[in-house]
């Protein structure tokens, strides 16, 4: 499996899942401007698609290098929610860390996101600088640059 991100030794590979087209474009644009390799998808099912075989056999593939270094996902999306993806993946090794974006920023959502290991939760509307700073902080701490 050839991933275009692998060929560029840039600042990191980010998967953006957001169903609002404008929001997704903006996120992708901002991240690319900062030098990240961005992959976009518009709903929960496509997000699961991108995670690929790892979802089917997480234990087997846990030592395989991941395709992405970070996932930024909206919580409410058609199909599968970002929170469900978080809950389904973070208990296994080998999945990239997740930053969640939500408009229903209630305490319960934050608590669940934290419980299942989200790196950060951003309530809409948020400052893009804060999100970019967080992305930078997370990717600086992960060993993606070795690839």
């Amino acid at each position: 499996m050839i991933n275009p991100g692998r060929e560029r030794d840039d600042r990191g590979r980010v998967l953006v899942a957001e169903d609002d087209v404008e929001m997704r474009r903006l996120l992708a644009q901002s991240l690319r401007k900062d030098g990240y390799d961005v992959t976009e998808c518009g709903d929960g099912f496509r997000l699961l698609d991108k995670l690929g075989d790892r979802l089917l056999a997480p234990e087997v593939l846990k030592h395989e290098p991941a395709d992405y270094d970070l996932i930024i996902s909206d919580i409410r999306m058609p199909g599968v929610t970002g929170l469900s993806v978080l809950e389904g993946t973070q208990m296994f090794e080998g999945f990239p860390p997740m930053i969640l974006i939500t408009a229903f920023g209630d305490e319960e959502t934050h608590a669940r996101a934290e419980q299942f290991g989200a790196v950060a939760v951003f309530d809409k509307p948020f400052e893009f600088e804060d999100l970019l700073a967080k992305v930078h902080e997370v990717l600086a701490a992960t060993p993606h640059a070795k690839h």
């Binding site: 609002d20 404008e22 929001m23 903006l26 901002s30 401007k33 409410r76 408009a103 229903f104 920023g105 209630d106 309530d123 809409k124 509307p125 948020f126 893009f128």
Partner: peptide
């Protein structure tokens, strides 16, 4: 309130970020 937050949060975010990009000449 949470409905309004959800419905208005996303466009607000887009507007604010786009405007900022333009303002900063980026």
């Amino acid at each position: 309130a949470s409905g309004i937050a959800h419905e208005l949060g996303t466009p607000l975010n887009v507007i604010s970020a786009r405007a900022k990009l333009i303002a900063e000449g980026e």
